[in-house]
Amino acid sequence: MNAIKPSAVALGIRLSRWLDRALGLLAAVLLFGMMVLTFFDVIGRDAFSRPIPGAFEATEIMMGILIFAGLPLISARDGHVSVNLLDPLLGARARNLQYRVVSVVGAVIMVVLAYVLWDKANQLVAYGDATAYLHIPLAPVARLMSVFSAFTVVVFIANAVIGPRQAGRAPG
């Protein structure tokens, strides 16, 4: 740790904050988009017999990206549901170690996920899969899912290196 120059650490922190904000904004735009799209689709259909063509497909794609954009964010805030039944029995050092081990496991899982989704994207390119109505190609969706999973690998590695946060203090 000491070998890393403070400026590099500062840069890393700034970069991660920027990424956190960018992903948060992306997720926000996608979710708001889903809401607006559904709203106008229903109004258009019920009031004017004109649903938005392909709203169904667009919603699916937005949601797929939304979930994976939210993943690094929730992971950075230790927001995954876990059962802390044994926590009271552990000392501070054991708790610290457990947190780091869990983070490493999380990172490994995310490496696998990033890899299989990248592979899935390649396969979708080969197939030429697209949506039925708007003909939106599906490979880029899987590609984005993979990239966001890779971000999450970085988040978990950072969690493992930094260790447990103080209660109530989240980064970003």
Partner: peptide, 11 residues
Amino acid sequence: VLGESAQTTAM
């Protein structure tokens, strides 16, 4: 609000 909701959704 949107960001929090997206995170809960991801979880």
